[in-house]
Amino acid sequence: MIRFLVQRLGLSVIVLLGVSAIVFFALFLNGDPAALMLPPTASRAEIDAYRHAMGFDDPVLLQYFRYLAHAVTGDLGTSLRFGLPVTGLIAERLPATALLAVTALTWSTALGLALGVAAAVTRGTAWDLLVRLVALSGQAIPVFWLGLLLLLLFALRWRMLPTGGYGEARHLVLPAVALGAYYMSAVTRLVRVSLIEALGQDYVRTARAKGLSSSRVVLRHALRNALVPVVTVQAMQFASLLGGALVTEIIFAWPGIGRLAVQAIQNRDFPLVQAVVLLSACVFVAINLLTDIAYAVLNPRVRL
């Protein structure tokens, strides 16, 4: 177990080093980060002065190691626009994004599970087909389009919910629905397929033969095994969840990290963008690590 943990931790560190290198060197893609960060109207002399002040004229590797050294102490740079440490700006917006993401993941997992189980046990019927259709369309609709449609109907036409904002429960409804729809569909499809497969296994036949009630067979025996891939995939979805949060937050003026990132890109506030990318990769890596560990603990067949 210790060996497994050390190995997985080591891999996570390598991945994060790689991400930091990509994030750092992305700024050099157009040749001159100093010119990139200044407004296009900046003069040659201003750019040169800025390049020197920021250390962009040092050897690139030295700059990268300096960036890393600062990063491990929690200093990811200063926002060009706000003049404040980027970590503080991100921390300020973190609760909003976390609230949105957790709400979206919770309702989508719950409903997806229910629909997936319902479809799997009624396989081949009209109900199954209906659930498959709902799941398919949920996966087909881009988050931002669904968000705009919800906005149009519930906020603009029927005036039932606010068009945007943050603070009360009613502000959360539309963004959480828009963001969660895709995952609800994904969970439904996955639970359905995975449960249908589990129901065909020998241990299910054994359980049935023992005379257990069919709800007990499905829920206690088959579903437990069917959930393993679902948990893994949901954890993997996290990266794309942040992508969805990006556009959702823009549409509903939700003051989270996604909106911060898009505004940072529009303002050419690169240190802030870099920090958002790096920190979201950290969260992704941490979640994967935890999933792997949970997986190993829960499933005795996974060797440590």
């Binding site: 942040l242 990006l246 990769a281």
Partner: peptide
């Protein structure tokens, strides 16, 4: 590990 859309936007 890097969210596609963020990397692409960057």
């Amino acid at each position: 590990a890097i969210p596609f859309i963020l990397l692409i936007l960057l």
